[in-house]
């Protein structure tokens, strides 16, 4: 009836990979944060797929909790980014070099 779960898992793995690569190659802190969101969504897709494949509502409950934690994480993370970059110019990770010897 529906598409085989393996295709969803492959798509989720691909999405996770793109998010990880983006996290590594981008230097804008906000875009890096968005890449983290991409990776979280890939994992959510995996959990929903397994919930369907194994016929277990627990996977969907896990996605629910991931959503809540992601919302909290975004709020705190953006607060940290705002408080760092309010007093510095530039918003790339390369501008944070106070600890450089």
């Amino acid at each position: 009836m529906t598409v085989d779960g393996s295709w969803y898992l492959i798509l989720a793995a691909l999405l996770f990979t793109v998010g990880a690569i983006g996290l590594l190659i981008r230097r804008n802190v906000l875009v890096m944060f968005m890449c983290v969101e991409l990776m979280l969504n890939a994992v959510n897709l995996t959990l929903v797929t397994f919930a369907r494949m194994l016929d277990d509502i627990g996977g969907q409950v896990a996605v629910f909790f991931v959503l809540v934690v992601a919302a909290a994480e975004v709020v705190v993370g953006l607060g940290i980014i705002v408080s760092i970059f309010r007093r510095r110019v530039g918003a790339t990770a390369d501008d944070l070099h106070i600890l450089k010897g």
Binding site: T2, V3, Y8, L30, F33, M34, E37, N41, N44, L45, V48, T49, A51, R52, Q60, V63, F64, L67, A70, A71, V74, V75, L78
Partner: peptide
């Protein structure tokens, strides 16, 4: 999510992620 019958999560995904988190960004 809708295609895999996770209807509630699909709605929450649109409201929380696309609605709130991206607007925050």
């Amino acid at each position: 999510f809708v295609a895999q019958e996770a209807h509630f999560l699909a709605v929450v995904q649109v409201i929380v992620y696309a609605g709130a988190i991206v607007v925050l960004f």
